[in-house]
Amino acid sequence: MSNFNQERLLQVLLAPQISEKATFVADKNEQVVFFVTSDATKPEVKAAVELLFKVQVDSVQISNLKGKVKRFGRSMGRRKDAKKAFVCLKPGQEINFAEGGAA
């Protein structure tokens, strides 16, 4: 974790994904889902989660999401692409967003 710039790590995580599917994944696999910057790497995401939430991360899977094509009036537009990180925590670790920090 020491080989990453701390300012960069604070910018890697954009927001947690709070949805029914993400909650199901969190309960079943002890994973947490985050939206991350488009140029984030797995080691950066792992270091950022460990730094911000004071938990131990087991592994990270990353998924690239293509933006949907939508209509805006007469013209067609496109939403931005996004990147999600599925962070698997070590057994006994937990992140509780309702309380705003690690549990």
Rank of each mutant, 00 (worst) to 15 (best):
R79D: 14
A26Y: 00
Q17K: 09
K28D: 09
T23F: 11
K66F: 08
A22S: 15
P43Y: 03
E94A: 12
L65I: 02
F53L: 06
F72Y: 11
E50Q: 03
K70A: 10
F86P: 04
V25D: 03
N3K: 09
K80T: 10
A102T: 14
D39F: 04
A26C: 14
D81R: 03
P16N: 14
D27T: 15
K66D: 06
S63V: 14
F35T: 07
D39P: 09
G101R: 12
L10R: 15
A22Q: 02
C88T: 12
K84S: 13
K83I: 03
C88H: 15
L13N: 00
E94H: 08
A85Y: 00
K46D: 08
Q11N: 07
A47N: 10
N96E: 07
V25T: 12
R74P: 04
R74N: 15
F24L: 14
D27N: 13
E20W: 03
L89K: 03
A40G: 05
A47M: 02
V25C: 06
I62T: 05
V45F: 03
L52I: 13
L52D: 02
R79Q: 11
I18T: 11
A40M: 01
M76I: 12
A26D: 04
A103I: 14
K80D: 14
L10C: 10
Q31F: 02
P43K: 04
A82S: 12
T37M: 01
S38V: 02
N29C: 10
S75C: 08
S63A: 15
T23S: 12
E30N: 12
G77F: 10
L65P: 00
S38Q: 06
D58N: 13
K80C: 02
G67M: 01
N3F: 10
K28I: 05
K70P: 00
K54I: 09
K68E: 09
V33G: 00
